[in-house]
């Protein structure tokens, strides 16, 4: 009995402690709360620069794009964050169609590249692009030389049996990067031919990773030879000191559009608009250079990292982001990929 009495005591303590924690419940509206899908060093740099430039406070929560999406949906009745920062264009489009975003046309919009202005306009300003990244792959030069494999230059090369069990890419069901790659291939080669190529390449894939950048990180550490990824992630490996060479495929390649968007009904809409203006400004986009990021910024006057892939060396296709971006398009692409590629005999 006394045991129970003691435990009742500790439950009373539970209530007291819980009460103390409520003290910190933040509903203060003077700061802007950002769901930040960048890597953590970039988010930190951005926050610091925002606070220095605008004199306003910002706090961020680091999430992956899918996590942010799930969180915004789960919080729909009572949104806690103001900005959905670094959203994949397709994700932001979905949220906008569900009525969870707020349109905002920033005065900075005229400073952006034409492609960015076009996408913002197409999306009725529910999102505004902050950068674009080009799809491609990278390989570990040491492993390639050691195994005397030919240098891959084109998408087609990746189906070469010489690379058996040497390629990693992400699973398009879990990673937006891989989904983007599959759409690119289908658009380049046509849907049926595209899946045939992917099935042939499947023999060379040793693992479909969960995260989009895991493949190229594994290539850096020598766990695989080739990783399919965005060029900026591959360059990052080289800059970190790993023996990785970045390839922009010869046939031409697709890209991702990363946007920022305001969450409808967030606690600080005024701060959200300030944040948007800031991340679209050259000052906001130049943060990328200081933290070694190699994407192509949307503001014409923003700097691009000297190591970033050169536009002149990359052949971009006119990627139709909407074709496979809808719910039905996604289901269709993924079920074909699963049946014809993932389950295909090796």
């Amino acid at each position: 009995m006394a045991f129970v009495r003691l435990m009742c005591g500790s439950m009373q303590r539970l209530l007291v402690v819980l009460a103390l924690f409520a003290l910190a419940a933040p509903v203060a509206a003077q700061e802007v709360t950002v769901l930040c899908n960048f890597e953590v060093d970039w988010c930190e740099g951005l926050k610091a620069s925002y606070e220095r430039t605008t004199g306003q406070k910002a706090v961020f929560i680091r999430r992956t794009d899918g996590e942010s999406l799930a969180q915004i949906r789960a919080e729909r009745s009572n949104p806690r964050a103001d900005v959905y920062h670094a959203a994949e264009s397709a994700s932001a489009k979905q949220l906008a169609s569900e009525g969870l975003l707020e349109a905002y046309k920033s005065p900075r919009i005229t400073e952006l590249h034409d492609w960015a202005q076009r996408i913002a306009e197409e999306n009725k300003y529910f999102q505004t692009p902050i950068y674009t990244g080009v799809l491609g792959f990278g390989y570990n030069t040491e492993l390639l030389a050691k195994k005397k494999m030919p240098e891959p230059k084109c998408w087609k090369d990746l189906a070469n049996p010489a690379y058996k069990d040497e390629i990693q890419m992400a699973n398009p069901g879990s990673s937006g990067t891989a989904f983007n790659m599959v759409s690119t291939i289908l658009q380049l080669m046509g849907e049926d031919e595209g899946f045939k190529f992917l099935a042939a390449m499947n023999k060379n894939v040793n693992q479909y990773t969960r995260s989009g950048s895991a493949g190229i990180r594994a290539a850096g550490k020598g766990e695989t030879t080739i990783g399919i990824t965005f060029l900026h992630d591959s360059v990052a490996q080289t800059v970190q000191g790993y023996p990785v060479k970045t390839v922009a495929p010869c046939e031409g390649t697709g890209y991702e559009i990363i946007s920022s968007a305001i969450i409808k009904g967030g606690p600080n809409p005024e701060g959200a608009r300030k944040w948007m203006d800031f991340v679209l400004s050259p000052a906001g986009q130049n943060v990328a250079v200081t933290v070694n990021k190699f994407q192509i910024p949307s503001n014409k006057n923003a700097q691009t990292h000297p190591m970033a892939p050169k536009a002149s060396e990359v052949k971009l296709i006119n990627l139709d982001l909407d074709k496979y971006g809808s719910k039905e398009g996604r289901d269709h692409l993924l079920s074909r990929w699963e049946n014809e590629v993932f389950k295909a005999p090796k």
Partner: peptide, 24 residues
Amino acid sequence: PLILGGNLEVLSVSIYFAIVGVQQ
């Protein structure tokens, strides 16, 4: 399973990607 799983699919990981993956 996320780091070392390779292509091994287990429930916990499937659940996570059913929530945050491409087909949410």
